[in-house]
Simulated scan of single mutants.
Amino acid sequence: MNTQPKVAIVILNWNGLKFLQQFLPGVLQSTYPNLEVVLGDNASTDESVTYVKSVFPSVTIIQNDNNYGFTGGYNRVLEKVDADYFILLNSDIQVKPGWIEPVIALMESDNLIAAAAPKIKAFAQPTHFEHAGAAGGFIDKFGYPFCRGRIFFEVEEDKGQYNQSGEVFWASGAALFIKKKYWELSGGFDEQFFAHMEEIDLCWRLKNMGYKVMYCAESEVYHVGGGTLDKENPFKTYLNFRNNLLLLKKNMPAAKAAAIISLRLWMDLLALFRFVAEGKRKDAWAISRAHQNFVRKLFASGKTQHPKSNNKQANLKGMYKSSLVKDFFIKKKKHFTDLDQDLFY
C-alpha cells in the first residue's frame, strides 16, 4: 500500500504539440511513486491530443469544450482530478526526475503550507533565473510583483545566492504545487483574470486566510516562457496592467486598496508615456484599455467570484513595505539582495 500522498501533474494545453513532444517525455520520467500525469486540453485544433493518446497512453486526458484561458481551463479540468496535491505545470517546462519529492516533503512538514514552487530557471540560459517565478515571488506596497532573482526586467544569474527554502508571497503558476483541499477552499482561479497574475491572486487569497506559500530551493525546473503570449505582446501588456489593479481591489482592505489604486493609476500613466516615447503605441493603448476595463469592473453590479477576506488573520510574509519602482529606477537597486531586508514582513 502506498502511504505517500497522491500527486497529479496537470498540464493545461492549447495547440502545444511542439512543447508536448519536447518536454512531456521528461515529465513522465519523474520518480515520485504515487503520481498521475494529466493533460487538460483547452479545445486544441492541432494534433496534440491525438499525439498524447497514441504515444503516451498512460497520460489521463481531460478535454474542455472550449478555450477557457489559463484560469477557466484549469478550473474545469481540476474539478475532475482526484489527488492530494495538484502540480499545475506549463507545457514548456523541462523537469529532472527527482523534482517532485523535495517540494512534497516541504509541504507535508506543515499543515499551514497551502502552495509552493520550485526554483525556476531559464531553459534558454540555464545559468540564469527565469522571469516568471525565479526563486519565489514577492510584492511591494503598491502591488508590483517581483521575485528573488528577477526585479522588473533585470534577471540574475543563479550563483547559489537563493538556495535557502522559505516562505514567499506567491508561487509561480508555471510550476505551482497546491494541496487539493486548499485549492477547493480558495475556490480556484478567478476567471476574471483569464491569464497572468491569477496565481498571485490565488496565493494572496490563501495568505489572507492565514496560510503559507513556500519556495523550495531543492527542486529546479527550466522554463521556456512566452509559449502562449510573447512578452512583447500588447494583449499581455493589457492583462498585466488590468490584472494588477484587480489584485489590489480584491485582496487589500477596501480603504487601503482605494488609496493605492489611485496612486497606481498615475504610476501606470508614466509607463504609458514611456511606451509612447519608445514607439510602442500598441502597448501604450493596451494600458489605456486596461484602465478602462478596470473602471468598468469597479462599477459593474453582481457578486464577485471570491469574497474578500476581512484580513484579520492575513499572513503578509513576503510583502515589501517600500516602493520597488523607487528602489529600482531611482536608487538603482537591481537585485533582490540590494533591497533592505528589514522592510519585508
Rank of each mutant, 00 (worst) to 15 (best):
K250E: 14
A286H: 06
R274K: 11
K236S: 00
R296T: 05
A255K: 12
L229T: 00
Y238H: 00
K249P: 04
L263E: 14
E278R: 11
A271H: 11
T228G: 05
F241L: 06
I260H: 04
H291M: 10
C216T: 05
R281D: 11
T228I: 11
A286R: 01
S288M: 12
W266R: 13
V224M: 06
K282E: 13
N243E: 09
K249Y: 14
L269I: 12
S288H: 07
D230Y: 03
L239R: 11
D268N: 15
F275I: 06
C216V: 02
R242K: 15
N293V: 07
M267S: 13
A259Y: 05
K231T: 06
A258Q: 13
I260K: 10
E220N: 13
E220F: 07
L298E: 01
L247M: 13
G225L: 13
V276Y: 05
E232G: 08
V224Q: 10
L272V: 07
A257S: 14
K297W: 04
L272A: 13
I260D: 03
L246A: 00
D268W: 11
N240G: 05
W285G: 03
K280S: 05
E218R: 08
S262F: 05
R242N: 11
E232H: 11
G279L: 05
G226Q: 04
D283T: 11
V224E: 05
L272C: 14
I260W: 07
R242T: 03
W285L: 15
R274G: 09
K250Q: 15
W266L: 14
S219K: 04
C216M: 03
A277Q: 12
V276W: 09
T228N: 11
